[in-house]
Every structure is written in structure tokens, then in C-alpha cells.
Design a protein around this nucleic acid. Sequence first.
DNA 1: CCATCATTTACGCTCGTTGTTATATATGTC
DNA 2: GACATATATAACAACGAGCGTAAATGATGG
Lengths: 135, 135
Amino acid sequence: MGCMHAFDVLGDPVRRQILDLLADGERTAGEIVAAVQGEFGISQPAVSRHLRVLRESGFAASVVHGQQRVYELRPTPLVEVDQWLERYRGFWGQRLDALETEIRRGRRDAGAREKSGVNASAVKPSEHADNTNEA
Amino acid sequence: MGCMHAFDVLGDPVRRQILDLLADGERTAGEIVAAVQGEFGISQPAVSRHLRVLRESGFAASVVHGQQRVYELRPTPLVEVDQWLERYRGFWGQRLDALETEIRRGRRDAGAREKSGVNASAVKPSEHADNTNEA
DNA sequence: CCATCATTTACGCTCGTTGTTATATATGTC
DNA sequence: GACATATATAACAACGAGCGTAAATGATGG
């Protein structure tokens, strides 16, 4: 059934939007459906299935209130993601000098080219565009 | 082609293992292939494509050294994940009291049931298994 | 009890990702 | 130049995620 890793769950933009909503507080399923439909234009059952994934993976929990279901965010999987990051957190202190400040102020275009010679993203259509630098 | 979100990239266990390797330092493509094959038993081209995904998404960069390619970890996307978490980080301080300590020591079974009545994962096959609590 | 609203499930479809096999591109060696 | 090593790409098959439509379940109100 639904044995998804936390990152698989977070891979879907609809689910990220739902989590974003829930970060502001509890939401009824109807509110979530409305918000997601406004952004992605998918059907209500599709949203419901995303809610189910979020429930089964522990990111959210629902509570029946009258004829509505109220969803709330649950911290556990997010904490696990944070723990996973821990291993790399020490790492980026090394080579993030001036670069970090630039990123921290909102420059989130996947960081393709900085000033360093090492090129991360390849695939220029014309050439074969290797990322071969730094001797 | 491959316009994947950072979380899509991290969703694959092979790619997570590669990142784990690179966190310890630079690795040649051959070393990565050997390690991944030992763990997952997939072919060399399959590993190479994962490396390509990691390159294109900015998680790794390669450098030609002789006839080998040396891969290194790049911090930018990991920093972005960290920034994404920032929005939720303030949140789990609220309801993570004693629960956090328990999680922090390695209890990572998706956090289905704690002591609270709110049930996260539903779908018990027999009943209809609602998560109905808290009046 | 029946109408109505809200949510979930079942099914069929499409599309992207992942894998394998075969081939291409470098680079180093003789 | 011929050949071996190292790595990347191409072509193709297959599995699974995600969607929509349609039907079912559950709750509230008359």
C-alpha cells in the first residue's frame, strides 16, 4: 500500500502546498480542497488521496468534527527529515562562505552557476556540456 | 528533460546512498558504482543516470581527473531543503515535548501511534478506522 | 426514514522514472 | 594508430504514481 519514504511524500507539489497550509494551523478537508484546486486545478478525490498519503506517512492527522474532517500537521516525519539533514549540515559550513549569504536571501534558482568554476548542471543541448573543471 | 524538485531527487534510495558516500568526501564514479552495486545490485548505466540526476539538480558536481570522474557533494540544494524546513521548524517545538526525546533516539517507525488519541494512519481493513477523536 | 452534503474508494488511463542491453566518448598505454 | 579502461548516453521495456469519472460510505438535518 502506502510505504513511502518521507522524501517521496514531499516530492509532490500538491502535498507540499497542503503542508504549507497546515503549517498555519488546522484546516478542514474542504478548505484544503479549495486551496489546492485554486492552485493546481485537480479534482477533489485527487486531493483526498494526497491527504491520505500524508496521513499514512505521518505528516498529518485528521479529526472528525461534525461532518467535516479537520487536518493538523504532525511533526514526526519533519523531524526525521531534519535528522537526515544533520549528516550534511556540518558539511556545508566548509564551502559555504560568501555563497551562503547570497542563497539565504532568497536566490533559490537551483543554484546552477555560482562564481566557482565547478559546474553542477550539465545538458546544454548544443554541446554535450560536461561539468569538467578544476583540473 | 529532468526538471526534478530537490525532494524528488532525494526520494530515491540509490541517490541517498550516493549522497551519503559523498558526504564522507570525494568519490570517483567507479567507486560510487561499486558501492551502489554492492547495496542495490543495479547496473553501471543505472548508477550513471542517478549521477546525472544529482548533477543536474545541483546536489553533486563532477570533475574529470585522468580517465576518471571525481564527484563531490555540493551544498546548495541541501541548504534549500534546510530552508524549506525552516518554516516548520518553529512548529514542532510546540507539540514535541517528551515525544521528541523518544524520536531522537532512533524510534523511526513513521510515528503512527503515540499516546495521544489522534490517530495518524487510518485504513484498518476491517472497520473503516476513522481518526475521530477530540469531540 | 429520506434528502443532502462531505469525503472516500474503485477503476481505467496516461505519463514519467527506473531498469537493462548495447553503443559512444574520452583518456591512458603500448 | 590499435587497444584497454572508465564513464556517459541511447533505445527500449516495465513498473508505479497521479489523475479523472463514477459510485459508495458516512454524517447532519428535516
